[in-house]
Design a protein around this nucleic acid. Structure first.
Length: 675
RNA sequence: UGUGGGGUGGAGCAGCGGUAGCUCGUCGGCCUCAUAAGCCGAAGGCCGCAGGUUCGAAUCCUGCCCCCGCAUCCA
């Protein structure tokens, strides 16, 4: 058993606000950490903002501030959000810190010395106006294959041809609109492939990660581990690479380093991190991440740490994502709920309890259903547990005195609860918070039953001592709840403790504890309702409240969320160029290896039927479309999809996927123009 | 199509070889200390489908269907 534990959450990207999706991770980890602390472990709980990269730079530019100013403001906001949700970070740092730079350099230098850094010349587009190299997605032009305009530099969205950005015709920079020039630049690569055997072994290590997800990573070995481009040419918002001229670490290199450097920042001591991260440190590291960034944490990160002579995490706990009312959080549906609007409407303990009651140890998604949220929290937290405390303490509050413990009469209920403490702690430890909550609720039921059975409010009139005895035993259970509930709803545990007029219990104290736990000579405090119910109207406001503009894209920054461009007005002349024609589907078949595509043969009244590939396979089976009349855009430039040339497009209505309907021109003969 | 996860009463889940269970919700009754809380009871399921193994399968095996995520991909 090691003496110290470092626990981290994934570093939120400094390009947007904290939302309820983030909170799933930070709340469950906070529960885990609070349990470990309660049990007496020496835990450091750290996190930081991930601040570098082009996305942040561009956001800052748009706002007319420097990147440093931008991330500083976001950092304050993030820190406040987490604080207000009761996330008990020992320190919340930033990757744009001197400590982080130092460790990024240290790791890089060690990797280089170990021969793990290679270099390769990469010819890249350069924007002379903007004075910077252009990543593939910052350069557009005409597809060399099909001539489609405004295609990105790596692949054509129209004909799915892949090519290098240099092959684009009429290329232009997205930043300046000017044609780029071609420059060769040296890029540095991390030789991940050298660690294949080591990583395979790492993934097999018991308890390191979810076995199913480890199996999924197998595909990367099958494809062959690719070496990893870790350098970007300046100007780039990040750290310069030592020994190189105008080269910077790619943001994903220095981001996880934040797990290390935040220890130094927290301790305000250079090298403090090595207490945890040195290969032989008497400590363990546990990361908590979402399933979207498994690759980085379970392949790249262990490899980097190993080559740098540092400790590989003992455990990477991977959780699922949050859906709202069963669907992905969406701005359009108003279900994209940020942390701040939630806090303005509702007590954070509700959400902490609700998430806890749903969170299992695995990577399954969990749903924030508004009705479920309100019903469960009201029934379980407020009615069962909150009311238990209140009904017990209210009766006791008449003179605030407890009965002396009498083991001959009482203690059965308390002993029963004590018998479950271990199980509850074990559940918290494996992130099976819903199992912990379930057990705690059973404690609540048992105590409520006990009160119904002993009827102290009635007995009080005939046998005051007996009633006191029963109430005091119930109060013991409430006292136990101060420890059991503390990881999930710490503020409420504090409140209970205050009403009992005692400090709250810890799991450590509960270990080997026996009845009675309460010092019966000490009076209790003033009871009051623990927490009120969630009102339906308030929950409704949660989704009704205008969703914030900025969408925080959790981790993979390389995927920039597409911004909906306003639909440009179209001249009638241009519109008239489009030829809509009625057609009849003669045959349809699925396209192999594509679950959205159907290959259709369509009669347009021409000499030969057209082949059109359409993304309707999720909504229609081949036999369902055969024989149907459809509307076809007949003069669209042909484009290859999955190697099949599609000679047109069929019109559909709906948002896509399964929700999609073919437009029917009615009973007209193939070739009839549609206007 | 590949890959991972999953299909158990209205909802969310547990059970993973031996009489189908928990919470929420619904309905009925009891109680009145308590935040219109609590307690008791009821209705509601051929455990995705079809085979097989077994004395016995929700639980093991085989095949299939459907859902979700990732990959591919959606003119």
């Amino acid at each position: 058993m090691v003496s110290k534990t470092l626990v981290t959450c994934a570093l939120p990207y400094a390009n947007g606000s904290i939302h309820l999706g983030h909170m799933v991770e930070h709340i469950q980890t906070d529960i885990f950490v609070r349990y470990l602390r309660s049990r007496g472990d020496d835990v450091a709980f750290l996190c930081a903002d991930d601040t570098h990269g082009t996305a942040v730079e561009i956001s800052a530019q748009k706002k007319g501030v420097t990147p440093e100013q931008f991330i500083d403001e976001v950092w304050r906001e993030h820190r406040r959000d987490f604080h207000d949700f009761g996330i008990s970070y020992d320190f919340y740092s930033s990757t744009n810190s001197p400590e982080n730079r130092r460790y990024a350099e240290l790791i890089y230098n060690r990797a280089r010395d170990a021969g793990f850094i290679g270099s390769k010349d990469v010819e890249q587009a350069f924007d002379e106006t903007a004075g910077r190299f252009l990543a593939d997605r910052f350069i557009k032009g005409e597809c060399p294959n099909c001539g489609a305009k405004d295609q990105y530099g790596d692949a054509c969205e129209k004909c799915s041809a892949t090519y290098g950005p240099k092959e684009l015709k009429q290329p232009y920079s997205v930043l300046s609109g000017q044609p780029p020039v071609w420059k060769t630049s040296k890029h540095l690569f991390f030789r991940l492939s050298r660690h294949e055997a080591l990583l395979k072994a790492q993934l097999q290590k018991l308890g390191f990660m979810h076995p199913g997800l480890a199996a999924q990573l197998q595909q990367f070995f099958d494809k062959g581990l690719a070496d990893w481009d870790i350098s970007r040419d300046g100007p780039y918002f990040g750290f310069p690479i030592p020994g190189e001229d105008n080269k910077f670490f790619y943001v994903w290199l220095d981001a996880p380093v934040g797990y290390i450097s935040s220890v130094d920042a927290w301790k305000e001591r250079e090298g403090a991190a090595l207490d945890y991260w040195a290969a032989d440190a008497d400590a363990r590291v546990i990361h908590c991440i979402g399933k979207d960034i498994v690759y980085f944490h379970c392949l790249f990160w262990p490899s980097v740490l190993t080559v740098a002579g540092l400790k590989v995490p003992e455990r990477v706990h991977i959780h699922g994502h949050l859906t709202v009312n069963g669907e992905k959080m969406s701005k359009a549906r108003g279900t994209f709920i940020n942390a701040r609007p939630y806090l303005e409407l509702l007590d954070p303990n509700y959400l902490r309890f609700y998430f806890a009651s749903l969170l299992g140890p695995g990577p399954e998604d969990l749903d924030f259903s508004l009705t479920e949220f309100r019903q469960r929290v009201n029934a379980e937290l407020v009615n069962n547990l909150g009311n238990l405390a209140n009904r017990t303490l209210s009766l006791l509050a008449r003179d605030k005195a407890l009965a002396p413990a009498d083991e001959a009469v009482g203690g059965a209920l308390v002993r029963e609860v004590l018998g479950r403490v271990k199980e509850i702690g074990a559940a918290y430890e494996r992130f099976d918070h819903r199992a912990a909550i379930k057990a705690i609720l059973e404690v609540g039921y048992a105590a409520n039953q006990f009160l119904t059975r002993t009827e102290p409010w009635k007995v009080m009139k005939t046998d005051p001592a007996g009633a006191k005895q029963a109430l005091s035993e119930a109060a013991e259970v409430v006292y136990l709840l101060t420890a059991l509930l503390d990881p999930v709803v710490p503020q409420l545990a504090n409140k209970l403790a205050a009403q009992l007029n005692r400090p709250k219990l810890t799991f450590q104290q509960l270990e080997g504890a026996t009845y009675p736990l309460l010092d019966r000579s000490q009076p209790i405090g003033d009871p009051s309702p623990l927490i009120g119910r969630i009102e339906e109207e308030v929950v409704a406001k949660l989704v009704a409240s205008a969703p914030p503009v900025e969408v925080a894209k959790a981790a993979p920054k390389q995927k920039v969320a597409p911004v909906a461009e306003p639909v440009a007005e179209l001249d009638f002349a241009d519109f008239a160029k489009v030829s809509f024609v009625a057609g009849k589907v003669l045959a349809a078949e699925r396209v192999p290896k594509a679950d959205k595509l159907l290959k259709l043969s369509i009669d347009l009244g021409e000499a030969a039927p057209r082949t059109i590939v359409s993304g309707i396979a999720e909504a229609y089976a081949p036999e369902q479309v055969t024989g149907r009349n459809v509307v076809v855009v007949a003069n669209l430039k042909p484009r290859a999809l999955k190697g099949i040339e599609s000679q047109g497009m069929i019109l559909t209505a709906g948002k896509g996927g399964r929700e999609l309907v073919l437009l029917d021109p009615g009973p007209v003969s193939p070739g009839t123009a549609v206007k």
